[in-house]
Each structure stands twice: as structure tokens, then as C-alpha cells.
Write a protein that binds this DNA or RNA. Structure first.
Length: 479
RNA sequence: CCGGGAUUAGCGCAGUUGGUAGCGCGGGUGGUUUGGGACCAUCAGGCCGGGCGUUCGAGUCGCCCAUCUCGGACCA
């Protein structure tokens, strides 16, 4: 156990108070900084580096599937925002408005973009005329502003970084295929980079995006069994294109409206990453997204040859593409151990005089704490295998948490009992009505997370109205 | 937006009946150390969250505001 070490004590234990633990990790791992404006956060270098890695992974996938990056304006004139009725109703309560330009009052107030559907549509109305102009496969990396009442690091910022993809297609089939493809890209990021298992599904009508015909989602389970939406992908039909008067001449020389999609993933996923994998010693990062994948710590570094050996070791790891850091600061070894555990570095490699003598080093993995002795002769192979093993183990542990805390229920009472107990996902049959969905929230305190793609096809009863239903829905408590 | 708690040095806190501020850690420097949060010496660091009031005098009392935090409501 830790002795009189205040840094360890300063972190609330995860199982004592999960939300407080979460805040502590964000601050102590140097991911986030507070500012003088409520809900506005600094992403510190270490936190931003995680986002950069997510960006890099996603951007490559977007481009590989034909998407192009663009940059849209920060401001949306009120009249433009109002063109689509459901959209403005959904977003109006959380818009920030600019009303002055210098000392002059503006003729029309400007909304700081909460999302950019209206801007993309307005632009497309100008440039899309022929079927030859389609599809448009656009994405932008930017920040958006939503004037939230309560804020929390990563999970709910008033300004947050994200990417928003917006695409326009000639046919509904093509647009739906795009929507599903992008959801799968998010699922791939979560599972293969972030080591977060997800459930793919559709949002109910009640939970879908303002103005969307259909919203797809990936749902993740946090360590405390609450749900977090990892990313969403929307199919709009031609509602927005009609409202914004986007029309093109098709191959039959008919003037028709195209079909639209949008999809987004934000820095909120970093909050999900923390809450999925973190432990009592702080952050635990999966190797593929970790800013530092391996930290090399020279032991007794003042002794002849130790620093050189550490640097040579790091050079070898760097040469094989590992993001590596040598910490040759004059902190004690114990301090460094704790520090890099707090920051979630997946692997720590120690090298000291005894190792040098035996042509070895010691590798300590963050996910299990396990230490192994590695021969320097097989360094590259061993580290590569460890990285993959850490990823796989982290994924497996998260998946086990999700599976162990996913239940089936037939009555509202059962749902409530599960949720009031240790929480988790609860599967029930559902008739599909918003009335029953609202009733479930009122009586059991849960919201629908999604209607999963994978259905058992069996028939049961809707726990609210008792109707025979084949559709399975997943309920949970969301962040 | 509603309710609870908080705001004094970088961090964590103390500060009595109102009399212009202290401790620990951290930081700098010099030295000894280094395989799980080292040690000695020394130095620096504060408009007591902001405003208004009461008072000869406010960290301390009153009112207002801001921010953080934990619940709840809301959340495309």
C-alpha cells in the first residue's frame, strides 16, 4: 500500500465516489485545466495529445473512404438556423448569440455554431446543381458551442472539439449506407484503438437528433455501469435539403432534392476512455491512443552507463514506431513510477545497473501491474507483443464489465430493481411507442440507449403496455 | 435552472470574542541519494474569489455576484 504519499491519497478511490474520482483523474493526470468562464476548459498538452491521436486515426479512415475536409464559418445567422423547424427547436435553448459587432448592434444576431448542418446545406444550395455534383462527402474538425447548464471535464463542455461529417447523396439508399458506414468507423475506432466495446444500434424517435429521420449510435458502458454515447450518425432523408432548397437535375432530367447525412464524435469520448479503463492509481490508456506508449526509466541514473543504456533502449523503441519517452529528471524512481501510472502510460521499462550487466530490462504493464524481465536481444518483439496484449486485455476487461452488467427484464419493477441496485444495461421488449418510453423513464428512471442492430427475433411483451412485441431495446442511465 | 458543500501561497488545509495571515506538501538553489512516491540545509512565494455594506478597523459579520463540486432537473 501507499505510505504517506499525498498524491495517491489526493485521488478519491474509484469505488468510493466515482464522479469525484473522475474529476480527480482529469486534473491530476494533467489532461484538463479550468478557466474563468464556466464550462470552458483548457485541454492541456497531455489531454490534447490524446485528442490528436484520435483525430489522426479517424481522419485517415475518413479520407480512405473518400471524405474531404473543409472549414465552415463559426457564426450562423438566426434566419439560417430557423429554416428547419425541428432543428431550431432542438438547439435554441443552448445557443450562444453574438449581438454586437464592435460598438454597433447587429442587424441580425448570430449564433455561435452548435453544429453546422445549416451551414453545409446553405453552401450546397449554391454549388449542387447536377447529379454529377454528387455525392458530397465533407468533414470538418472544429469546435462548437452549446450553452450547457452544468459542465464536466470532457463529458460536457460549453465549447468542445469534435469532427462533424456532412454528406449529400442522390439516393436514400446511398445516404443510409453512408450513415451506417460512418457508424462502423466509430465502432472500429472504439474497439480497435480505444479498447472500448460498443453496442451498435438506432436511437428511438424520442432520442434522435433534432431534424433527423434516423439516428444511429454506439453505446459504451463505463466502469460504474452508466452509459455513454460514443458517437452518432444521422440519416436526414431530404428534410434539410428541401428546407434549404438544395436541388439537382438527375439522370432523367428531373429536378429533385438530394439525401443528407451527418455524423460526429467529440472529445467526450476521452471522458469515456477515462471512465472505462481508469483505476485507483489514475488513468489507464490503451496503447494505440496513448501519447506516451512506453516510458523508459533509468534506475540509479547517476551511475556510469545507465543513462546511455536507457537512451539506446528508447532509440530502439522509437525506431520501431513506439511513442517513447526517457524520463531522466532527478525525481526519485518511486516518484516516477507513481507519476506515469497516474498518467496511464501503458508500459514502463526500467533499466538499471543490474539489468545492464545481464543484458535485460524490466517491463511493468499499467493494466495489470505485472512486471516481466525482458532480454535486450528480443526487445522489439517483446514490446510489440506486450502492446498488443495490453490492448486485448483492456478490451476484454471492459467487455466483461459490459456483459456482466447487461441484464434482461420483463417488467418495469425488474428494470427498476436492477437500475437502483448496481446499475447497468437492461434489455426488454418494447412496443415502439414514445408513451411507453416516457413511462419507463418516469417509473424506472432509465432512458432508452438504443435499439440494437443485433436482435434475438423472439416475441415478448412491452413491460409498460403489455403489447406483444418483437423489438428489443436497451435501457440505462446515461452520463 | 433547483438543492447541499466549497473558494485563504502552485496544491491540501488552519486561522479563536473582528486588530492587516500560518502549517504541511510542492517550487528554486547547494549537497547527499535513486529497483515503489528519498533526505539535509537554505530561499522565494498571499489585494484571503469579486463587489457593496456595517465598523476606528473585516479573512472573520451582512447582502449581492462569480466559479468549482456533489446531487436533481434538462440535454439535439
Amino acid at each position: 500500500m501507499a505510505k504517506d504519499s499525498r498524491q495517491v491519497d489526493a485521488i478519491t478511490r474509484r469505488d468510493t465516489d466515482f464522479t469525484q474520482w473522475y474529476t480527480d483523474v482529469c486534473v491530476k493526470a494533467e489532461l484538463i485545466g479550468y478557466t474563468t468562464v464556466k464550462g470552458m476548459f483548457v485541454l492541456r498538452p497531455y489531454g490534447y495529445a490524446i485528442w490528436e491521436n484520435i483525430q489522426k486515426e479517424l481522419d485517415g479512415r475518413f479520407k480512405a473512404t473518400g471524405h474531404e475536409n473543409v472549414s465552415m464559418p463559426l457564426f450562423i445567422p438566426e434566419s439560417l438556423l430557423q429554416k428547419e423547424k425541428d432543428h431550431i427547436e432542438g438547439f435554441a435553448p443552448e445557443c450562444a448569440w453574438v449581438t454586437m459587432g464592435g460598438n454597433e448592434k447587429l442587424e441580425e444576431r448570430l449564433c455561435v455554431r452548435p453544429t453546422s448542418e445549416t451551414l453545409f446545406c446553405s453552401h450546397w444550395a449554391d454549388v449542387v446543381h447536377s447529379w454529377r455534383d454528387l455525392p458530397k462527402l465533407y468533414n470538418q474538425w472544429c469546435s462548437v458551442v452549446r450553452w450547457e447548464k452544468t459542465s464536466r471535464p470532457f463529458l460536457r463542455h460549453r465549447e468542445f472539439l469534435w469532427q462533424e461529417g456532412h454528406t449529400l447523396h442522390a439516393t436514400p439508399e446511398e445516404a443510409i449506407a453512408e450513415t451506417e458506414q460512418q457508424l462502423e468507423t466509430y465502432a472500429d475506432l472504439c474497439e480497435n484503438v480505444l479498447a472500448m466495446p460498443v453496442i451498435r444500434g438506432c436511437k428511438t424517435d424520442k432520442e434522435k437528433f433534432a431534424g433527423a429521420e434516423r439516428t444511429y449510435t454506439i453505446e459504451c458502458m463505463m466502469h460504474d455501469h452508466t452509459a455513454l454515447q460514443g458517437g452518432t450518425s444521422h440519416y436526414f432523408g431530404n428534410g434539410f435539403p428541401t428546407a434549404f432548397d438544395i436541388a439537382f437535375s438527375d439522370k432523367n432530367n428531373q429536378l429533385v432534392h438530394p439525401y443528407e447525412t451527418s455524423w460526429g464524435l467529440s472529445t467526450r469520448i476521452i471522458g469515456g476512455l477515462i471512465m472505462t479503463h481508469g483505476d485507483d492509481n489514475g488513468l489507464v490508456l490503451p496503447p494505440r491512443v496513448a501519447p506516451i506508449q512506453t516510458v523508459v526509466l533509468p534506475i540509479a541514473q547517476h551511475k556510469e552507463g545507465v543513462l546511455d543504456a536507457a537512451r539506446a533502449l528508447a532509440d530502439r523503441l522509437g525506431a520501431m514506431g513506439i511513442r517513447v519517452k526517457v524520463d531522466d529528471s532527478d525525481q526519485s524512481a518511486g516518484w516516477k513510477f507513481a507519476q506515469y501510472e497516474m498518467k496511464g502510460v501503458p508500459l514502463r521499462v526500467e533499466i538499471g545497473p543490474r539489468d545492464i550487466e545481464k543484458n535485460e530490462c524490466v517491463a511493468a504493464r499499467r493494466d495489470t501491474g505485472e512486471k516481466t524481465v525482458i532480454s535486450l536481444d528480443t526487445l522489439e518483439d517483446s514490446i510489440r507483443a506486450l502492446m498488443d496484449d495490453i490492448h486485448n486485455n483492456m478490451y476484454a476487461m471492459a467487455k466483461k464489465n459490459m456483459e456482466d452488467n447487461t441484464f434482461e427484464a420483463e417488467t418495469v419493477e425488474e428494470v427498476k430493481k436492477i437500475v437502483d441496485g448496481k446499475g447497468g444495461f437492461v434489455k426488454t421488449k418494447w412496443c415502439g411507442s414514445t408513451e411507453c418510453e416516457n413511462a419507463m423513464k418516469e417509473r424506472a428512471g432509465v432512458t432508452s440507449r438504443c435499439v440494437p442492430f443485433v436482435q434475438d427475433g423472439k416475441t415478448g411483451v412491452c413491460p409498460i403496455c403489455g403489447k406483444q412485441s418483437v423489438k428489443t431495446v436497451i435501457w440505462g442511465v446515461a452520463y
